[in-house]
Design a protein around this nucleic acid. Sequence first.
DNA 1: CATTTCACCTGGTGGC
DNA 2: TGCCACCAGGTGAAAT
Length: 283
Amino acid sequence: MPELPEVETIARGVNARVRGDRIVHAWFANHQRLFKSHAVRQAKGLEGRVLVSVHRTGKHIVCELASAPKGRHSSKAELQPDAQWIVHLGMTGRLLVTTPDAPVAPHTHARLELESGKELRFVDPRRFGKLDFRDLKGGEAFNAAGAEPLMIAQEEFAALFRGRKLAIKAALLNQSLLSGIGNIYADESLFHAGIRPRRGAGRLTRAELERLRLALQSVLEQAIRLGGSSVSDYVDAEGMRGFFQLEHCVYLRTGQPCRHCGTPIQRITLAGRGTHFCPKCQR
DNA sequence: CATTTCACCTGGTGGC
DNA sequence: TGCCACCAGGTGAAAT
């Protein structure tokens, strides 16, 4: 489900609600594939630690955790993190902050009870999500493989695609090149840059690459401002839908008129994914 | 190595 | 109403 703007929206929402709170109990469902490190180890690591901050890296939500003696509430947010809980939402994952009496949704696979009484819940019908715990003593902090699309500079961006034979859309989806772009924002940014998804990544001109970089950044930034795209079931940490789906120009608009020229939007399959573009505006 | 395909899951939709 | 085929925002392992 969630790509960079949705994950950013969720991370900000969770951070605002749980920052400084302590995890008093962690419960995990018995679905082994969800856990990159063993569920028992994750629960042990989480219980007693304070959530110092929650932020996004690529499509991952990173919760910074610190061990802290009980009863000192004044400066919890400034504690030095010594562990991380990393949540990947897969296609259908949700990370929600709820009251303890809120009904437990079907497919709830994790519940963290917090000292304040709130709960942090992970819900994921298709179970493509992943939960990981890292102890920073002895282990490495989490790092996304690819570059951040919102931060990358012109030269570095162009270098990512040099010499590559795969289609530009496939390259945009490759998380070890850029992290955070998924099917919606790949299609939308290629539309705004006027580039056909099947074009070879290594054959784009410098001008096209720079148009693409700027299109990606403006599309992602606008989507974050609108709280992400709610195509079917995406909601933020409070269960609220986003609004960027109303701004989509091509994604899931097969056969509908292009917003710029009126030509019907085409759908093809590329890299195994539904791919949408305007045959007139994109060359 | 680079690139492509497919399995992993459940649920929603639309045709018959 | 039921059954079925097909579709879905992601990733990583296996095949090419």
